[in-house]
Amino acid sequence: MELLVQTMVNGIIQSGFYALAAVGLVLIFGVMKVVNFAHGELTMVGAYSVWFLHAQNDMPFLLTVVTAVVLVAMIGLLMERFLFRPMTDSPLGGLICSIGVLFVLQVAATLVGGEGPSKQVPPPYEGTLVLFDMLRIPYQRLFSFAVAATTLGLLWYFLTRMRIGWALRAVAQDREAASLQGINSNRMSMIAMGVGAAMAGLAGALMAPLTNINPHMGHNVIITAFIVTIVGGVGSLPGAVIASVLYALFHTFVTTYFSGTIATISGLVIMVLILIVRPSGILGKRVTE
């Protein structure tokens, strides 16, 4: 029983990171039709920023999180302007550019951090919340989850309640129709990429005190983000959030009761199955051929 509840909590906390990373990927794909393969690396840059500024140079933690988000958003904007925009007509072109960026960012991280062991960031919020004498949640995780959930809430507000959010969704649905209505699709791409990258950066910054930081940490992030994206339905943001929670719970439970590798393998298999049975994902619209 204890283990069940603890696993539940572990899974829900994990879902916050998954959702932050996946929502950005979905947003970028939705608006720009580009698969950003470097999305995991954007997360990695967020984590490295916190390590470099906070752990190495004693900048206050919250300030470094903000800096990391801004930095990664700027990388995203540069990618949009100089790589994805010239490649608008070739979806594969954008993907390949992002693979190039992936390598460049990994090397940049190695140059900043040097080779050697994974980097560690001492958690700024120490201690563990103990509930009912059985449930244990480190404050650092609680903090990360709270920030992730708040951010996702703000994004939802932005997309559904603000004009510009409406415009963004219009472009995602039909780029041509949107531009006929006078929506500047380039501007929307910039916003999507900026927001998407910022969220990846935030995910990385929040993860930093909780994980091994190394130049290759983005690999696991992108696999998870792909799975969540497909399961949730490509282009569906609510789908991505729900899929994040489901997948995080699934993965955490399988890891707890079986094994981590089995959890990832079955996640990948489920993703392929969903591609076959319902390519539009659990919440996506039916794709018309």
């Binding site: 283990l3 572990n10 899974g11 906390i13 994980t211 940490m217 992030v221 094994s259 981590g260």
Partner: peptide, 20 residues
């Protein structure tokens, strides 16, 4: 005995499961 893969990013569930 919990033998996990190299794809694990979150060790909370693994540790919870063995500490149980």
């Amino acid at each position: 005995v919990n033998l996990h893969g190299f794809d694990v990013t979150d060790f909370a569930p693994i540790v919870s499961s063995v500490l149980a």
